[in-house]
Write a protein that binds this DNA or RNA. Structure first.
Lengths: 338, 338
DNA sequence: TCTGGCACTCGCACGCGCCGAGTGCCAGGA
DNA sequence: TCCTGGCACTCGGCGCGTGCGAGTGCCAGA
C-alpha cells in the first residue's frame, strides 16, 4: 500500500533525523536526497506517512520526525545491518584478547560496546543455568564451616559459605568433593539437581545433614534470576541524548540501576539474531523513549547470555546492530578459548 | 579572626543553601535563624566572609553561596557528624545481612549507600594486598592447562588461567597445591612473593617450568592497581544535581567510568576517619564541582578498602558523613563474620 | 558596634513583533 | 492519474524593552 517512493521518503527522513536531531522538512529532504520529485510531492507523501502513523509533527508547521512505528518499519524493511570494517574487527579482537579472567572479559566488552556505539552498554554474565559445570570445590574453613566454589566452562566462578549442622571431617570432605565432581563435572547445570539427588545416602548418618546442606546451597545458587549478573557502562553517553534530556535521562538511569528491569529487557528478546526493541515496545516505562539492541552470545553455537546497548530511539540502527553483532561474535570466541 | 557570630552566619548560609539550592540573602537569613541581629549587621558579616573567600555572589545583587573554602571551614569546624538513628542502624544491618557472597555484599552496600545519601555510591572491593590468603586452589582443566583460584579472608575470589609449558601430572598438582597452601594460607598477600620464592626448587626439573608459571601468574594477580576492583551505583541521583546540571553531569559520569580516577580518589584519603574532599580539592577536573566523602572499612581494626559517595559540593555533610561511617562499620562486621 | 533607611544594581519574567521554515491546498500540466 | 509550482497560513524561536523585586553597600544615628 505504501509505494516504493514513500518508503524511500521514510528512509530519508529517518536518516536525516538521526543525523541532525532536528525535524526534517520537505524542502531539505529533496535537497539532500535525489528523490527525483519536487518538495510538493514529498509533502503529499509525508501527509500519507503521517496518516499511517509512521511519522509525526512535534508542532504544526515544523518538520516531521519518525514515530516508533516508523523506526520499526525502517529497521524491518529499509535498513541492512552494517558490517564492521576489517580494521574495526581487528580492534575488537585486540581489545578483548588481553582479558585476564571472566570479569575482565565482561568489563572490556562493556567498554568496547559503549565506545563503538556511543551508547549505554549492557552485558550479561554467562548464565549458570545455560552453562556446564567445570568443577565444584569444597574448602574447609572451620570445623563446621565450608566454602563451596562453583566453576563453569565459561570461566564464571561463584562461591558460597556453608554453615554445617555438624563438624565435617577432612576425609568426608574429600569424599564428598570427589563424588560431587564425578557426578556433575562436564554436565549441564540444569541437570545437577537430579544428578545429586541421592548423594546423601552414600554417607554416614552423621554426615548426611552436612551433605544435604551443601547440596541445597548448591541448588540455591542455580535458582534462575538469582544467579544472573550483569554489568553496564557508557552511561556518560546518555548526555548526548538530546537537548531536552534532563527529563529523559533520569528514568533511564533509574531503569538501568534495576537489575531486574535489565534482565527482563534482555530476556524478552528471543530472536536468534540481533533483536531491536523500539520505544514503547519496551515494557518498562522509563525506557519508552529508548531503543534496546540486543543479541545472544555464547562459546559454542548456543547463547549462554545476552548483551546489548540502550540508546535513544533516534539512533543509527544499522551501525549499532552491526557493532552489537560483531562484539557478541568475538566475545563468544574468547569464551570458547578460555 | 572570624568572630563567633560570623562563623554562625556562615553555618546558617551553608545550611540554608544546602536546603534550598538558592543563593541566600541577609533578610532570609535573619528570618530563618535567630541570630539576634538585624539584616544590616548580617550584611556586614557577609561582606567580611566574602572578603575572606568563604562565600561568593553568583552575580551582583544576588544572595551568597558558600565557596569550596567555606564548605571546608564548615566541615572542619562548624559541623558534627550526624549519627544514624537506631531504626536507621537496624535497617542498615538488616539490609546487609542477607548477602550471600562478597559480590552481593558489595552490591548491597552500594545500593544502601546510594539510598541513604541520595548520592552516587562507590565501594571498593577488599584489596588483595591488604588481605590474608585463605586458600589457593589449583584445578587441572587439560593436560597443560590449569586454573588458579585465590580466596581471601574477606571472601574475595580471583581466578586465572595458566597455560603450562609442559603437561603437569595429577600427583605434581596435588603436591604443588599442598605446598603452596602450607606456605601461604593465613599469611598476608604482601608476604606471598618471598614465601614462594624457592618453591620451584622442590620440584623435578620437568615440572619446574610449570611451577614457575603458576607462581608468576599468582604474583601478577597481586600487582597493585591491577587487583583493585570497585562498584558504583546511584548514578540516577546525579539528576538531582541542580538546575544547571546538563553540563555538570557529563564530566562526572565520565570520571565515574574511569576506574583509575575513582581508585585514586579513594586512595588519596589517608585519614583513619571519614575524609571529605571538596570541589577543587579533587585532583580530577571533572569532579571539581563535586565533593567526595570516603572512609576505610575492614573486617578487623584495619582498613582493607574504602567506600564513599560522590555528590554536589552543596550536600548535607553531617548526614552524609554519618551515613558513610555507619555503613562502613556494618560492612566491616559482615566481612568479619564471613 | 549595631541598626534603620535609602539609593542602586541587575537578573528574570513577561509581552510584543518579526522572521522564516514548513505546511496544506489548489489549479494547471505531463 | 500523478506530479508540480504557487500561495496563503501557522506557529515556534529570537531579540528587545520594560517593570519588578530581591539583595546589596553605604551612611548617619543610637
Amino acid at each position: 500500500m505504501l509505494s516504493e517512493r514513500r518508503l524511500e521518503v521514510l528512509r530519508a527522513i529517518v536518516q536525516d533525523y538521526v543525523g541532525t536531531e532536528e525535524p526534517v522538512g520537505s524542502k531539505a529532504l529533496t535537497e539532500r536526497h535525489n528523490l527525483g520529485v519536487s518538495p510538493a510531492t514529498v509533502r503529499n507523501d509525508m501527509a500519507a506517512l503521517e496518516e499511517e502513523g509512521f511519522i509525526a509533527q512535534p508542532h504544526t508547521s515544523a518538520g516531521r520526525i519518525p514515530t516508533d512505528k516508523g523506526y520499526r518499519l525502517f529497521v524491518d524493511r529499509l535498513a541492512a545491518v552494517k558490517p564492521m570494517t576489517a580494521p574495526e574487527r581487528r580492534a575488537i579482537q585486540n581489545f578483548l584478547e588481553g582479558a585476564v579472567d571472566l570479569d575482565d572479559v565482561v568489563a572490556r566488552t562493556v567498554r568496547l560496546l559503549a565506545q563503538l556505539t556511543r551508547q549505554v552498554a549492557v552485558v550479561q554474565y554467562p548464565s549458570l543455568t545455560r552453562s556446564t559445570v567445570r568443577h565444584v570445590e569444597l574448602l574447609s574453613l572451620a570445623p563446621a564451616r565450608l566454602m563451596l566454589v562453583l566453576i563453569t566452562d565459561t570461566g564464571r566462578v561463584e562461591q558460597r559459605m556453608v554453615d554445617c549442622p555438624a563438624p565435617f571431617g577432612e576425609t568426608s570432605l574429600a569424599d564428598l568433593r570427589a563424588r560431587l565432581n564425578s557426578r556433575v563435572a562436564g554436565r549441564r547445570f540444569t541437570d545437577v539437581p537430579t544428578l545429586v539427588e541421592d548423594l546423601p545416602e552414600a554417607f554416614d548418618r552423621e554426615d548426611r545433614g552436612t551433605v544435604s546442606t551443601v547440596l541445597s546451597t548448591l541448588l540455591e545458587t542455580l535458582v534462575e534470576e538469582n544467579e544472573e549478573r550483569l554489568m553496564i557502562g557508557g552511561t556518560a553517553n546518555l548526555t548526548r541524548f538530546g537537548h531536552d534530556f534532563p527529563l529523559m535521562i533520569r528514568p533511564v538511569l533509574e531503569a538501568l540501576e534495576e537489575q531486574m528491569v535489565l534482565l527482563k529487557l534482555l530476556g524478552e528478546a528471543k530472536d536468534p539474531g540481533v533483536t531491536v526493541r523500539i520505544g514503547h515496545e519496551n515494557a518498562h516505562e522509563g525506557l519508552n523513549s529508548t531503543s534496546v539492541v540486543s543479541v545472544g552470545y555464547g562459546s559454542g553455537g548456543e547463547a549462554v547470555a545476552k548483551l546489548g546497548v540502550v540508546g535513544p530511539t533516534r539512533m543509527d540502527y544499522p551501525g549499532t546492530m552491526g557493532a552489537v553483532r560483531a562484539v557478541a561474535r568475538y566475545v563468544g570466541q574468547i569464551l570458547a578459548e578460555s
